[in-house]
Amino acid sequence: MSVDLQTVKRVAHLARIAVSEEDAERMTGELNAILGFVEQLNEVDVSGVEPMTSVTPMEMKKRQDAVTDGNKAADIVANAPATDENFFLVPKVVE
């Protein structure tokens, strides 16, 4: 399988990365090189093989559903580019 310019632009939008015409053209070539390289996986007979979900055979650890942390609003917004009274500020999303 290979991608065309339109697909690259669509994927870039899905990934929320702005691309110029020139970027998209370059990426088309690069992505096709990588997709061409991974194509060889199709040779492998995987009938009856389970997809891997965890490399270590272990049960996911669970813990008591109790509050162990909190009251850190100031820490959480400390690195944000724009805040107001412990809220993250973003461009208007609803009219």
Binding site: M1, V3, T7, V8, V11, A12, L14, A15, I17, M27, E30, L31, I34, L35, V38, L41, N42, V44, V46, V49, E50, P51, M52, T53
Partner: peptide
């Protein structure tokens, strides 16, 4: 480049062909 590849292989219609196949190969 890697975000784009990742987004593509996880996008609708390609998940089984790429991601699922790769995770099966990983088991092998």
């Amino acid at each position: 480049r890697r975000i784009m590849i990742g987004t593509y292989v996880l996008s609708a219609g390609y998940y089984d062909a790429y991601y699922l196949q790769a995770q099966k190969v990983r088991t092998l």
